[in-house]
Design a protein around this nucleic acid. Structure first.
Lengths: 229, 229
DNA sequence: AATACATTTATTGTATGCAATCAAGTAGTT
DNA sequence: AACTACTTGATTGCATACAATAAATGTATT
C-alpha cells in the first residue's frame, strides 16, 4: 500500500489515471511546480508521486531534467506483453485449482458492469476491461501476484496509448465471458489457452499498427507539411 | 534504474544489503535522523531510500511512526516463494529455448566464483548464491523479468533472515551445476524440475523450521514456562 | 551567416525549519 | 494499586529556501 504519505496519494493516483487514459501522452513533461499548484501541495509530495510512478515504469525521471510520461520502446512493449502472458497464465492455473463458485460469481458481477458500460462510456469501458484482469489476479488470493498484474496492466495501457490507434485494442466482453466459463469448469488448459489468445489479440491490435508512431517527432511531422520547394 | 537521486542510492543500497545479510534484523527501527548522520546526507535522501525499500517490500513504513525492517508473515512468505517458483520456471523455459553456448559459459563462470568462496567467506557465498538466480533471469534478456526476480530474491533473503536458522538455507552449488547442465542440453523439462526442487529445498529448510516463529509472541513463549499447577 | 561563447531563465536537487503526531513517562485522582 | 490526564521528548510530515544544473536566448567573433 501507499503508506509513505497520505496526501501524496491523490497526486500519484490522478497522474496514474491520466497516463493510463492517455490524457497525459507519452513524452509529455511533468514539472513538479505546476503539478503541485494544481493539487495544492508542495513539490515534495509531487516528487514522491513521480518517483513512485517512475519505479512502476509509467514515468521516466532523468537527473536534473525532470519527469515525463514514459515512452516505452517497441522492444520494451514486447517484453512487457510477454511478461503479462506469463503472469496471467499463472493466474489461470491458480484459479482453476480453487473452489470455482465464489470466483465465478465475482467475475460475472464484474462482467455485468462491463456490459452495462459498453457503448455508453468509452473511458469507463476501457478501465473496467483492465480491472477484469486485476480482479482475476486478486481472486487468486496472492497479494504479490495481484500487485504484479496490476502494475503490468497499467504498463500495457501505456503501451496501447503509445502504439495503438484509438479504440483498436479494447478487450472484448465475449472473450472475458469465455474465460469465466473455462474457470467455472475448472478447465485449466482451456482457461490458459483462451487467456493467451485474448491477450495475443490485444497485443496484435496494438503493436502491429501499420502507422508506427516510433518516428513521430517534430522533424518527421513537419517534413510532411514542408512546401515542395 | 535508480534515476531519481544519485546521492540517495548509496543509502538505499547499503540498507538493502544490510537487510539481506541480516545485519539489520526484521522489526528493527530505521530512524531517518541517525541514518542520515551515518551517511552524511539529510533526511530527505534517507526518506527517498526508505520509500523505495518499502515499495520493494524490504521495509515497512507506517504513517507518523517511521520505517522499520519488514517482518513478513509466514503467509506472505509462502506467497512470495510461490511467486518465485512461477518466475524462475519462466526463466528456465526461456533459457532453454535460446542458444545455450554463451549462456552456459556465463553461468559456469559464476559457478566458479561460488565454488571459490564456498567455505571461505560465508556472507559472500550467500550473496553469490542469490546472484546466480539473478544472473539466470538477466540472461533471458528480459528487463522486466530480471527486475522481478531480483526483487523477489531479495524478499526471499529477508524471509530466510526471519524464519530460518543460520546457514540452514544456503543454495547448494551442486544443485546450481545440475541446473546449468539441463540448460546446456536445452532440456526445459528437466531444467524446470530441477529448479523447482532446488527452490523447494531452500523453502523447506527455511519455512518448515521446527521452531515456527509464527507463534513467537509473549503469551506463547510464557505458556511453555508456566508451572503445571 | 554560422559558430562559439556568455547570460539569463526555468527547473530540479538537497538541506533545513516548523508544525503535527506519537510514545513514554509523570503526576494526580479514585 | 490501578487508571486516567497531562507533559515532555523524540520523530515524522511537509513546505520552503537556496544551491546546482540544464536549456534557451542573446551576443560577439570569425
Amino acid at each position: 500500500m501507499y503508506k509513505s504519505s497520505k496526501r501524496s496519494f491523490p497526486v500519484y493516483d490522478s497522474l496514474r489515471q491520466a497516463i493510463i487514459e492517455q490524457a497525459l501522452k507519452p513524452g509529455m513533461k511533468l514539472p513538479e511546480d505546476s503539478i503541485g499548484e494544481t493539487f495544492g501541495v508542495s513539490r515534495t509530495l509531487v516528487r514522491n508521486a513521480l518517483v513512485r510512478l517512475d519505479a512502476e515504469g509509467l514515468v521516466d525521471i532523468q537527473p536534473n531534467r525532470g519527469a515525463s510520461v514514459a515512452e516505452p520502446t517497441i522492444e520494451e512493449a514486447y517484453d512487457i506483453f510477454d511478461m503479462r502472458q506469463c503472469l496471467e497464465r499463472e493466474v489461470m492455473h491458480r484459479l482453476c485449482q480453487m473452489e470455482s463458485g465464489p470466483i465465478v460469481k465475482a467475475l460475472k458481477a464484474h462482467l455485468a458492469e462491463e456490459d452495462k458500460a459498453l457503448g455508453k462510456d468509452g473511458t469507463r469501458s476501457i478501465r473496467l476491461a483492465g480491472e477484469f484482469h486485476i480482479l482475476l489476479a486478486e481472486l487468486t488470493g496472492s497479494q504479490i501476484l495481484a500487485n504484479y498484474v496490476n502494475e503490468i496492466v497499467s504498463r500495457c495501457s501505456l503501451i496501447l496509448a503509445r502504439f495503438a490507434q484509438a479504440h483498436s485494442a479494447e478487450c472484448g466482453v465475449e472473450e472475458h465471458a469465455e474465460i469465466i466459463e473455462a474457470i467455472a469448469r475448472g478447465d485449466a488448459e482451456h482457461a490458459v489457452t483462451r487467456m493467451h489468445g485474448h491477450l495475443r489479440g490485444v497485443q496484435d491490435r496494438a503493436l502491429l499498427n501499420p502507422e508506427d508512431e516510433r518516428e513521430e517527432n517534430v522533424a518527421a511531422i513537419l517534413s510532411r507539411y514542408r512546401p515542395k520547394d
